[in-house]
Write a protein that binds this DNA or RNA. Sequence first.
DNA 1: AATGAATGAGCGTTCATTCAT
DNA 2: TATGAATGAACGCTCATTCAT
Lengths: 193, 193, 193, 193
Amino acid sequence: MSSSSGPQQRRGDTRQRIQDVALELFAEQGYEKTSLREIAERLEVTKAALYYHFKTKEDIIISLFDDLTGPVDELIEWAQEQPKTLEMKREVLRRYSEAMAAGASLFRFMQENQATMRELSIGETMKRRLFLLVGLLQAADRPLEDQVRCVSALFTLHAGMMFLQHVEADPEETRQAALTIAMDLITQAHSHE
Amino acid sequence: MSSSSGPQQRRGDTRQRIQDVALELFAEQGYEKTSLREIAERLEVTKAALYYHFKTKEDIIISLFDDLTGPVDELIEWAQEQPKTLEMKREVLRRYSEAMAAGASLFRFMQENQATMRELSIGETMKRRLFLLVGLLQAADRPLEDQVRCVSALFTLHAGMMFLQHVEADPEETRQAALTIAMDLITQAHSHE
Amino acid sequence: MSSSSGPQQRRGDTRQRIQDVALELFAEQGYEKTSLREIAERLEVTKAALYYHFKTKEDIIISLFDDLTGPVDELIEWAQEQPKTLEMKREVLRRYSEAMAAGASLFRFMQENQATMRELSIGETMKRRLFLLVGLLQAADRPLEDQVRCVSALFTLHAGMMFLQHVEADPEETRQAALTIAMDLITQAHSHE
Amino acid sequence: MSSSSGPQQRRGDTRQRIQDVALELFAEQGYEKTSLREIAERLEVTKAALYYHFKTKEDIIISLFDDLTGPVDELIEWAQEQPKTLEMKREVLRRYSEAMAAGASLFRFMQENQATMRELSIGETMKRRLFLLVGLLQAADRPLEDQVRCVSALFTLHAGMMFLQHVEADPEETRQAALTIAMDLITQAHSHE
DNA sequence: AATGAATGAGCGTTCATTCAT
DNA sequence: TATGAATGAACGCTCATTCAT
């Protein structure tokens, strides 16, 4: 049985569908303003059905981050083993930009719901990761300007994703442009040595 | 007597006190998660008292933005009358950075509650302002990289304010550093001509 | 002092204005749905001002009925002293119809807010009056049909006022027509003797 | 066991029980003055339970009218297809009187809460129906007296139901008497031709 | 003759969650 | 794998009313 790809999937794609719809709505309206009733209605199931698949509302959102944390964790682990060279940092930015592209709507959600994230367990988790990343990019012994440059590099990636979505240009192209600027910034942060 | 701490010492400053407490709580927990009951309790008045001073919950937050909109509007107006030179843009960044410093907690609130802001009338207003600012910094006829640099300049200011608050350094110093980087970015965006 | 008509009226017409506006709004929206805030706003005074002139909301409506009760009470008193002839009943209908024309909006209010009236002290009062009137028109020793006719005569007056207000015709003309029918009914109720 | 009075004997009739209690209270105190808390308490459920069965308070009252609208609609449809003869009008009165008897408490509620009905969606609907009925009874080319007679016929039915409820007589008998008078009126309206 | 400031009670409504079936 | 029915807590908001000034 279980005709094609994953385990236990025959008609049991409900869990996945809940996640899809939830992400869609969370991204659109925010986490707090999205009610389980809304999610259930859009799926044409009852609220109780959601509780068969997830223990709480927070559980739904936590599950959404599961796909994201993997690649980022690997990135962090990898980086921690490398020497703190410019080239390593460039690689970090490159891969981080890719991860963002893959989980764009999730990143946007995070960006737009920081206050909410702060009281979600997953929020703390993600924030710690971000700090780790900043720590990896940072050169603590450099002048404040260069430190800001490093942070700004990361932020530029976010800026590229968020703000420029309202712009006419091709998303991928925009992402590349943002990556370029981020690279510039990190390079400058190193060039004054 | 009873100069400071009695239960009924102040007269006529209730409106202001509501604003103070509201800002505090909105910034801490987000707009949605802060209930009027909470605000009222902290002020030791009833919920109904809030409604004597403000017509709705949204009205409270709108009033908080009143001090902010003035300076930013003036900045935009001024900039629109200037020629689009590099020097003008530098001045815009300078003054915007100052406005942010003055209304820091409000800016942080905006940053952290974007999803919420989107459905507040004031959200649209602020967003339009931001777009105007970006438009003023932008050089539409330039390569995509330079355009991103302009946006990134603005975002760097935000980054400076938000992210580096978790850092040990002096806030004012940090702001200056962020301003410097933003200046660099805008200058670079012009230098390839 | 007190230049022209009533006692204490120089600039002290506020009480009257409250009554006017209240009647207007009560008639338009019902008693319950009309708030003191609304009345106060339309008069451009504060709610507290209303409480200077009237002790409660109910007091306002009671005062509105004051002009009405006089004529109706007199009518009842007069009728109770007369013998129960047809001619007396015709006179009752005539004068009642007149009273209704004078206090039309109040009558309409009563008609449309019976459920409300029932729990207002004034409601009981008015209802007792109505029953007295019906009793005066009634001939208890007649067949049920004739009794209904008597009630219907009174109702026809109300019907004339209420329902035909939505009709193109002249109000006074309509009232006369309704009076005629009511007369017919009461006459028929007597003719089978 | 526990056949009738236990705290949890019925299953699946809650919706019906809500309607029963609501009608009872609405009729007794009016729509506005009846709170959902009151309804819930009398049913020994929570307010939230009401919302499982009805989307809003207005929804409850709308549902109460559902049984009524059917027969009346059919009556109107039927009448619209008939020629405007006296016999047709007599049939309309007959059937309308029957419909009223079936939904007596609802009709009484309407009569007593007209001001409320006016702002309920269902109010408009019912009013339109009433006007249609009057239009069907009316003979627009007749003298004003005869037009009033037609309206009065309908009102007599209402009068019969409402006012005479306070009277000792048998309701059905009273209804028949009122119907007779209404018939008289409509017949008279035609007899002067 | 009126206001400014506030209250206490209550409203209709929504929410995340539970549990027997 | 789900549903039907319900709950308890909270929410934003409005109301008639009070009272010192």
